[in-house]
Simulated scan of single mutants.
Amino acid sequence: MAVTSRDVARLASVSQPTVSRALRDDPRVSEDTRRRVREAADLLGYVPSEAGRALSSGRTRRVGLLVTDLANQFYAQVIAPVHLELEERGYQLMLHTESADNETVVERLIANGLDGVILATTTIDSVAPVRLRDRGLPFVYFNRTSAMVDADATVVRPERGFDQAVEHVIELGHRRIGAILGPSNTSTAQSRESALRAALAARGVTLDANYVRRCPFDTSAGDEAAASLLALAEPPTVIFCGNDVVAYGALNAARRAGVEVPDGVSIIGFDDLPAASWPIIELSTIAYDFAAMAREAAGLVTQRIVDPDSPIQHVEFGTTFVPRRTLGEASAT
């Protein structure tokens, strides 16, 4: 027969409601009583029912992570730190994926009885933040934000990383500078483009429109965009990519075109994913602590669940340039 809360109550010499309150650290229960209840529960091997907890507290202790681009290697890297941070705080991670960010997604999130949501692939024109706000479901932006609704967010400040990268590029003699920028409806693409242009302008260099391509944040799109740049009569000698997975595509395009990296073209990414440092790749990139950013997002959403009226927090993470094999001196051609 399964151990019940009544069994714990008898052993700890308290009432059954006190057992429930003690195991969820209700401040109305003294520390001594909470200790006795926990010891009794451990001795009996009692495991509280999640359904019962949800009914008594009005919370499921489940947080959703909404990712509409699961194929992107970046998001595969943030799932683990989000899960670990939520677990430490007593919450379960529920991964939700969708091919499009629309009202249907929000209704699915609501229907799953979540306490809060981390929005990981929000676009500027997304309706999800508006719908979540209107339905009263706490949420946090991770990496990307939307101006439509102000909310807690963890974001990257790309300026320092681009300034360092451009300094290296100029010192190595590059003047034909290309860029494969991300989708214009994402805050990340906009902030990175702005930071790149500002760093170049500070050194008297402009980004030639002929050397600019825009594409989704994926490898195949980066491959196609880089191939078109390398096919120009005077191709760029260096290509800044919207992120590392786009840069992987650019490396593939260079290999296919017979252009040596970095002798024929230099390639720079953004994010510093684990594979970027592999000896077979050694991608020069702009880095930041995306795992810490993911953990911070998990912390913010649980704080918002507990205290929905607290001031909104925007937590920013700085960047730094990491030069590796894919950046070299400008080619003479």
Rank of each mutant, 00 (worst) to 15 (best):
A254R: 03
I177Q: 01
P308W: 08
A120M: 06
D152N: 11
M1D: 09
R36I: 01
G178K: 03
T4K: 13
I305N: 04
E159T: 15
G182M: 10
A253V: 08
L251N: 01
T219I: 11
G161S: 09
E103F: 10
R36S: 10
G136P: 07
I79N: 01
H96P: 00
E171K: 13
N143R: 12
T285W: 02
R144L: 14
V265E: 02
S49N: 13
N185C: 09
V238S: 06
T122Y: 05
T237L: 02
E98S: 15
I124H: 02
W278D: 13
T18Y: 01
N72Q: 06
V149Q: 02
R89W: 01
P311M: 11
R213G: 07
V67K: 07
G222Y: 08
T188G: 10
N112G: 08
M1V: 10
R61G: 01
A195N: 09
R157P: 00
V169P: 00
E107P: 00
R192M: 11
I170V: 15
R175P: 01
L70G: 04
A189L: 09
A201F: 06
S191T: 14
V105D: 05
F270A: 10
E282R: 14
N185Q: 13
V47K: 11
C241R: 02
T285I: 05
R131H: 11
R157L: 14
G64A: 15
V117D: 05
R89G: 14
S191Q: 14
G64I: 08
G222A: 11
V63A: 07
A298L: 12
D244Y: 05
P236I: 05
A195C: 04
E103K: 12
V169H: 00
A253L: 07
T206V: 08
R203G: 03
L55K: 06
I180Q: 01
R6Q: 14
A291W: 01
L84Q: 14
P48I: 08
R61K: 12
R295V: 02
E234S: 14
V156C: 12
I286E: 02
M148I: 08
I177A: 03
P216R: 10
A257Q: 11
A147T: 04
T154K: 00
R175N: 10
R325G: 06
I170M: 07
A189P: 13
G113C: 08
R325F: 04
R10K: 13
I124V: 14
Q16R: 12
I305R: 06
S126Y: 11
L207P: 08
E98N: 03
D150N: 10
P183N: 11
V169G: 03
S187Y: 04
V19K: 09
R160S: 13
T326H: 04
L200N: 05
G90H: 03
E39P: 02
D101R: 12
I79H: 01
Y46I: 10
F321C: 09
R160T: 15
L109T: 13
A195P: 07
H174E: 06
A151Q: 08
T219K: 09
P311E: 08
